[in-house]
Design a protein around this nucleic acid. Structure first.
Lengths: 152, 152
DNA sequence: TTCTATGCAAAGCATTTGCAAGTCC
DNA sequence: GGACTTGCAAATGCTTTGCATAGAA
């Protein structure tokens, strides 16, 4: 939480970072907990929460607060948008450029000091589209993609 | 929650809707609870939650899920963006047009069926800017505004 | 009259925190 | 050695839910 104190790379912290970098999914805290227990059978959920907080505050990972759903964490610390499946809750990266101008535009007209923006897309993931067999509108067939394919 | 059943306009529901339309702030459930107790001293928080849910599901009001903070509710049901003060947590409307093209662009490249997007700005509200007396960077002095002025 | 809504209290869930013991630099 | 961390468990805070009673159509 602090980052006003130096932070140590403990084994727990390293493993959490490792596991997070290893996957392209966007795991929740309890998923990270599960992912680390193989290597650290005695780690506690509280430690996972604390470390995810510290790692994201230090910029090594990214904390995603999409909607009011459970927080998720992204081993990719670079600024990018996400899309969330309203059906299964999975989260994928969106390959589109960051909107820089909207903040500048708002600066001109707003009394606020603008610090940033948060953009998130909602949709139905390919897997869930397939599940609802036939019975729905607007079924894309095309093959191109702009979303990194991995999931929940 | 349902809306598959007809819903009745009870006194509680009406008062909640009323009070919400009356203000331009974006109250949390417990603030709505406080706002209604003047007219309905015996209303319960649970009822407030249930009705806010029903009213927003029916489109009469809007439910705001900004970050993972407490939900807020907006008597203005029209689609518009919001800005949240990182210092005091207040929420204001942002007067800028809705981005329609980003979803269409994403449609072309994404395997997802795009259903919508959620955009939220972060900043420091005028009131909080004033509080930190002088001791900070980037103090706007200008008078124009693009944000409906009312607050938390 | 019938089905929905209310009040109350208890439960739920994700997350945070206090504390004594352990560990890193 | 001293500050930062951990594991454990309890606490927190917002929101939801079960249930018996009340109320709208």
């Amino acid at each position: 939480m602090s980052l006003h104190q130096k932070f140590r790379m403990t084994r727990q912290r390293q493993v959490i970072l490792d596991e997070l970098k290893k996957v392209h999914t966007h795991p929740t805290a309890d998923q990270v907990y599960a992912m680390t227990r193989g290597r650290l059978p005695r780690i506690s959920l509280g430690t996972v929460y604390r470390n995810l907080e510290i790692l994201s505050a230090s910029g090594l990972i990214q904390k995603l607060e999409l909607g009011r759903a459970q927080k998720r964490f992204d081993g990719n610390a670079e600024n990018h948008y996400h899309i969330r499946c309203v059906s299964c809750g999975c989260v994928d990266d969106v390959m589109c450029s960051i909107l820089t101008s909207i903040e500048q535009d708002l600066c001109k007209t707003s009394e606020y000091e603008i610090l940033g923006h948060r953009l998130e897309f909602l949709g139905v993931c390919p897997r869930c589209k397939d599940k609802r067999t036939g019975t729905r509108k607007k079924m894309k067939k095309g093959g191109s993609y702009g979303i990194k394919g991995v999931t929940d």
